[in-house]
Design a protein around this nucleic acid. Structure first.
Length: 484
RNA sequence: GCACCGCUAGCUCAAUUGGCAGAGCAAGUGACUCUUAAUCACUGGGUUUCAGGUUCGAUUCCUGAGCGGUGCACCA
C-alpha cells in the first residue's frame, strides 16, 4: 500500500510545511454552529458563524478565494482574502488542498450573485488529506471503486448521499411507525445452534469455550415466536440476516429484514399493516405515492403507483390470467407444452406445482410493478403457514410483489405443535439435527394465533429510491478482496 | 458454478487496419479582489490490471489468471 506518486508526494511536503510552521496537520476538536446544512439554516447577513468540512472546490482569484466547504448534509461557500487573514495565515492557507478538512470562523454575507457565503476571519486545519479526491464534475463513476471506497462515493456523488439518507430515514420511520402501532422492538440471537425460520444455507462458525458449532441466523422467526409464547402481543425486529448463497443484483450475503409478529391477528390484518407502513414511508420520505425510477440520463423508466388500496388477488387467478383460464384443468404434459408456447423453459424433473410456480415467477412476479398481494398460495410453496380452513391445499399467506420483486411474505402463523413438527420433519428430510426442538417445546406451551411478516429493507429501499442493484443501497456490500 | 462484457495518468474518458499512448479535471508555476464545472498562459504526470505467447513492432491479436458488471443457475 506504499504507492507513491507525484500528487501524494506533494501533499506530504505540504503536510511537513504545516508542521514546520507549528500547525498540526491533523487537528483538534473544533466548535461549529452545526452541520453545514444547519449553518445554512442559521445564515443571516452580518452574523458570525462557525463551520467545518472538506474543501471540495477552490476558485482562486488571486487576492481573493472562493471555496466550497462540504459535509454529508450540504455545501456552503466560504470567501477568503489575504488582506483579512494576514500574511501568516495566508501562507498556511496556501498549503491547503482539495479534500482537506478545515474549520472556519466567518461572517455571513451574500455575494453579488446572491450566494450565501462565509467571509473567513480565522480558520484551522482539521485534517490534511494525502490523496486527491476523484474528479469534481463526474465524481467517482467506477462502480467497483464506489463499493470498495464508499467514502469517496459519498464525498463526490450527490445521488449516493441521497440514496443513503433515504435508507436511514426508511429504517428510522419504520421503527417509529411500528412503535406507534404498539409493537415493541426486541433483539434475538444472531448466533443460533440451529439455523431455523427459512430454508437457506447458513454461515457456520464455532464457539471455542463451549466447543460447539454455531450458525449465523438466516431468520429471527423462531425466536420472535417464542416471545409470543412468552406473552408479548406485538413484537418486531429490524436487523441483519445472513445467507450463504449466491450474490446478485438482488442478493447480498447479509441483508436487513423487518420481521414482525402480531398475536390474535392474521395475514389479512398484516397485509393492511404492511400497506399502511409502505405508504407512510413513501409519503414521508419520498413525498409521493408515485415512485419514479430513472435511467442514467435521468429519463423516467418506470413509475410505480403505491396509491391504496392495493390489489389483492389469488395465486390461482393470477396464473390463469397469464397461462389460460383452463391451466389447472390441463394434464401435466399439456401444462409443459403450454409453458413452452409461452416461452418459459421447464426442466423435466420439475414437479407440477413447480411448473406453475415458474410460470408465476416469470410471467406474473417479474412483470408486476404496482403492488399486488398474492394470496391463497399452494401449501407446497410455504410450509410454515397455516392451512386455509376451507381448502387445505392452500395456505393463509400473502406474497407482496412490487417492482417485479417479492418484497414481503406475510402469514397466518402455524401454532399447532403437531402439524408444525410434521412440517419441519418433512422439510428437514434425513437431517433431523436441523429440527429446532427447543422451538417445538415452546409451541407445546401454547402460542396464540398470530399474523407475521418479513420485509426486506434493502429491496424496499431499492423500490423507493429507484436503485437497480442491492449494492447501491448497502453502504458496504460484500466484494471479493483485491489481491496483489 | 456457467456465459457474455469491461479494466488506459489520482479521477472522467480517447487512441483508425497491429505503427511515437492523448485530452479534460486534479496537480505545479505565473496572471487576476464577487467566483461557483471560475478564466487565461506554460509545465510535469503512464509497468495500458497481471503472467505468458504471436509479431520487426501489441492498449489493440491469442492463451491463462485477478477483480468487477450483466444474465443464467442457486435462493420458501
Amino acid at each position: 500500500m506504499e504507492e507513491e506518486n507525484e500528487l501524494i508526494a506533494l501533499r506530504r511536503q505540504k503536510m511537513d510545511a504545516l508542521r514546520a510552521r507549528g500547525v498540526a496537520p491533523f487537528g483538534q476538536s473544533f466548535e461549529t454552529s452545526g452541520s453545514v446544512a444547519e449553518v445554512r439554516e442559521k445564515f443571516s447577513e452580518g452574523t458570525p458563524l462557525r463551520a467545518a468540512g472538506r474543501i471540495t472546490a477552490h476558485r482562486d482569484m488571486g487576492k481573493s478565494h472562493f471555496l466550497d466547504l462540504r459535509d454529508a448534509t450540504g455545501r456552503i461557500q466560504i470567501y477568503a482574502q489575504a488582506k483579512e487573514l494576514g500574511p501568516e495565515a495566508t501562507e498556511i492557507f496556501g498549503l491547503l488542498d482539495l479534500g482537506d478538512f478545515i474549520g472556519v470562523e466567518g461572517t455571513c454575507f451574500l455575494t453579488k450573485t446572491g450566494e450565501p457565503t462565509l467571509k473567513v476571519h480565522r480558520f484551522e486545519v482539521l485534517a490534511k488529506t494525502l490523496r486527491p479526491l476523484p474528479e469534481k464534475w463526474h465524481g467517482l463513476t467506477d462502480v467497483e471503486a464506489c463499493y470498495r471506497q464508499r467514502y469517496l462515493d459519498l464525498v463526490t456523488n450527490e445521488r449516493s448521499r441521497e440514496v443513503f439518507a433515504n435508507r436511514i430515514a426508511i429504517v428510522r420511520e419504520t421503527r417509529r411507525f411500528m412503535e406507534s402501532r404498539g409493537f415493541v422492538e426486541v433483539e434475538t440471537p444472531m448466533l443460533q445452534t440451529v439455523a431455523g425460520g427459512a430454508a437457506a444455507e447458513p454461515f457456520r462458525t464455532h464457539h471455542k469455550a463451549l466447543g460447539i458449532d454455531l450458525y449465523l441466523r438466516i431468520a429471527p422467526e423462531l425466536y420472535l415466536k417464542r416471545l409470543l409464547v412468552g406473552g408479548f402481543n406485538k413484537v418486531f425486529e429490524v436487523n441483519r440476516n445472513f445467507r450463504n448463497e449466491g450474490i446478485s443484483r438482488r442478493h447480498n450475503p447479509e441483508f436487513t429484514m423487518l420481521e414482525a409478529y402480531w398475536a390474535y391477528a392474521n395475514f389479512e390484518k398484516i397485509a393492511d399493516l404492511v400497506e399502511e407502513l409502505i405508504c407512510h414511508l413513501a409519503a414521508t420520505i419520498i413525498g409521493s405515492l408515485q415512485i419514479e425510477h430513472h435511467d442514467a440520463e435521468g429519463k423516467v423508466t418506470r413509475t410505480i403507483n403505491l396509491t391504496p388500496p392495493w390489489r389483492r388477488a389469488r395465486y390461482r387467478d393470477l396464473v390463469c390470467e397469464v397461462a389460460g383460464a383452463d391451466w389447472f384443468g390441463l394434464t401435466s404434459e399439456e401444462r409443459r407444452a403450454q409453458a413452452h408456447l409461452l416461452g418459459i423453459e421447464i426442466q423435466p424433473q420439475m414437479a407440477d406445482y413447480e411448473v406453475t410456480q415458474h410460470i408465476f415467477e416469470k410471467l406474473v412476479e417479474e412483470k408486476t410493478y404496482d403492488p399486488v398481494f398474492v394470496t391463497h398460495c399452494p401449501k407446497e410453496l410455504v410450509p410454515l403457514a397455516k392451512q386455509n380452513a376451507e381448502d387445505d391445499s392452500l395456505v393463509d399467506v400473502f406474497e407482496l410483489i412490487i417492482n417485479g420483486q417479492e418484497i414481503a411474505p406475510g402469514y397466518t402463523e402455524l401454532n399447532d405443535p403437531f402439524v408444525q413438527r410434521q412440517r419441519l420433519l418433512e422439510q428437514a428430510g434425513e437431517e433431523t439435527q436441523k429440527i429446532d426442538e427447543d422451538f417445538l417445546l415452546a409451541l407445546e406451551h401454547g402460542m396464540p394465533p398470530a399474523g407475521g411478516v418479513g420485509i426486506g429493507i434493502d429491496r424496499l429501499t431499492m423500490l423507493l429510491t429507484g436503485a437497480e442493484s442491492i449494492r447501491d443501497v448497502i453502504l458496504f456490500p460484500l466484494l471479493k478482496p483485491k489481491q496483489g
